[in-house]
Design a protein around this nucleic acid. Sequence first.
DNA 1: GTGGTCTAGACCACT
DNA 2: GTGGTCTAGACCACC
Lengths: 127, 127, 127, 127
Amino acid sequence: MLFRLNPGSGVPIYLQIMEQIKHAVENGVLRPGEQLPGIRKLAESMVMNPNTVAKAYRELEHEGIVELRQGAGAFINENLNSKELIDRMQTARPVVDKAVERLLALGLSEEEIKRLVDAAIAARVGR
Amino acid sequence: MLFRLNPGSGVPIYLQIMEQIKHAVENGVLRPGEQLPGIRKLAESMVMNPNTVAKAYRELEHEGIVELRQGAGAFINENLNSKELIDRMQTARPVVDKAVERLLALGLSEEEIKRLVDAAIAARVGR
Amino acid sequence: MLFRLNPGSGVPIYLQIMEQIKHAVENGVLRPGEQLPGIRKLAESMVMNPNTVAKAYRELEHEGIVELRQGAGAFINENLNSKELIDRMQTARPVVDKAVERLLALGLSEEEIKRLVDAAIAARVGR
Amino acid sequence: MLFRLNPGSGVPIYLQIMEQIKHAVENGVLRPGEQLPGIRKLAESMVMNPNTVAKAYRELEHEGIVELRQGAGAFINENLNSKELIDRMQTARPVVDKAVERLLALGLSEEEIKRLVDAAIAARVGR
DNA sequence: GTGGTCTAGACCACT
DNA sequence: GTGGTCTAGACCACC
């Protein structure tokens, strides 16, 4: 498990941790039942506050992705149907990749792409 | 110029204002040199504090989109090549729309789509 | 008399007008007794508010550089010892030019140069 | 970190704070990665409103000099090449000092010196 | 404890 | 009438 965090990005660090763990699950890098690195260990290795890691784990627990077992550690939820999830993602990835590649080639910035995606989603499901 | 703000969305109001002005520029609704509504006028019509509007305008100025002139008002930056920008956007929109439609059909959530887009961009330009 | 104004520079326009008129006087481009362009004419040709030009002229009058004669127009003050002033300036200019050239060659930005000049002056006279 | 502010100088307080921090960085008093005094702490010790300090910090962030981290504090940007910057400044200072000394000896006023510097810079890079 | 956002309201400078 | 600065003070999010 490797993390690439960007402290100055405006995105809260605990959210960045959450995103990367979700990403790992969606890609089968982390499997149901697998143990996550300990809060203190991870915090120490990333030079960050343990509270930050704890908050990320806690939020992931609320979302049903992680299970915190007192004294034992944090684990990816066993009941997570990762098979189906991974399949969907594997179908979705090339769709996204091709679109993003095309948009970047058009000269759009990261921000512009995200704004367009937001608008497109909102036009179909949003608010 | 019409604004649709969502106070309880967690997204800061000043950011929502910024997004909508950017969106308007990208769609040719606001043209280079055009005057924006006055800070106080807008604040009053949106029932919010002038400082909040001022912050949005100031940030847009930092991004080179808006020009603030003491005593004169706020204007869309003249040197903004809006023609080219609008063209790019008009090409980009259908690309995004189709991809998003496909992803939603696959059953992906809004959050999952955004995460995939982030990852795809990061794999190419980000760090 | 030609003006080069920069509306987005943060420096008030009326100050920019004042600076350029002073500069012209110091260089003998404008001589004592000479008439300045009319307020409305100038404002019209520069596409600005007449009040802005009027303020510049009024301030220059306060500084004793310009004389406003009701109904007749604005003139460079006759009693201005421009000869001596121009001499001093002609000696000073190469000193400044050489220093600035050297500083720019060193890679200093305009802002950094001004900050250093401020500090150097303050160390001798100001506080 | 010590500040010398002049409230009645016409120069906005937040600009004075910015200048002094820049000055400190250029002189190696503040080093990349170093933490700045907290917004509230500084505001309290300077007997001013926290928003004023916050504005100074935010502007410095826009200029890439400071990095603001939610919940962690304000820091001098790590990626600032302060070594090179300080060297340049140390070379530049005597150049400025000698020139200013000569100009003051010639009887130029502070204002005249600044106007000459402005003109000299504009003749080379400005517009 | 840190910075971020927002409100309310005053006063000033500029056009 | 426009934006710019500053104060006072509340509440929230993050580390």
